[in-house]
Design a protein around this nucleic acid. Structure first.
Lengths: 127, 127
DNA sequence: TTTGTTATTGCAACAAGGTTGCGTTATATT
DNA sequence: AATATAACGCAACCTTGTTGCAATAACAAA
């Protein structure tokens, strides 16, 4: 059903993503906002924002659910189409806008993919 | 430290992977062998086989830990270098031997990647 | 502005995959 | 056969995430 009321929790969570194009895990948001909102609320709002194609989610290699802003998603066509990059030094995860050449797989039908690249981000590679 | 004694549990688990090149989740192995071995044992043996570069693990989109045989891994250079394919119909996960063209990422250093492609496998695409 | 509807919140209890500590068992070396 | 210790099994625990339900608060209508 998605978001229908602009509550405090919706406002605060949206603001967390408005800043930058970095992905944030649900756990991190709960650590940060758990004093103000119950974790059930946070999970619920994230779910609804994903339904509305405002956010998309993916699983990090840590097994946590990560969320990030959608750029060109509609509610109808809302797919996790871009790869993500996770920095092994600072932990930051961000969305890559590059396209990916998937391998050709004869006899199989490709529907989705999830690509997580790990390494050192722009900030950490120089250190 | 890896495997140093050839126990029943090691033997049985290795046999599960000897058959085919399909990946198996830890949960599935526990469901299948939980009557014979404790889950702690199963997790432990899988860990050690991964240390020994006999198996490698990766996270499925279901959040479960999946294991599969390594082909050309040594203990020293043991990386999760190949993509996996998960069938959305039958649930089977297998290892792809194709190579992947990663996007160029200026200013970043790529160390690992994890690519999970989802769709219909050879068996399910025809149905 | 007040009222009424109901989406949203917060709480507590739970679920599932996985981990930890530790006493017991059994492999393999001597 | 004796011994050292790797591996096992059990129970209890941890973490992320989910569920059911009563209380609360958006928001539209009166």
């Amino acid at each position: 059903m998605g978001i229908v009321r602009k509550t405090k929790a919706v406002e605060v969570l949206l603001n967390e993503f408005k800043m930058n194009s970095v992905a944030i895990s649900a756990k991190l948001l709960i650590d940060k906002l758990g004093g103000r909102f119950n974790k059930t609320t946070i999970y619920g709002v994230l779910d609804k924002l994903e339904e509305d194609a405002v956010l998309h989610s993916f699983l990090g290699k840590d097994g946590l659910k990560w969320y990030a802003k959608c750029n060109n998603c509609s509610t109808a066509e809302h797919k996790d189409v871009h790869p993500h990059f996770q920095c092994l030094s600072c932990g930051k995860v961000d969305c890559l806008t590059v396209s990916v050449d998937l391998p050709k797989l004869p006899n199989r039908k490709i529907e989705f993919f999830q690509l997580l690249i790990q390494g050192k981000c722009e900030d950490c590679v120089v250190l």
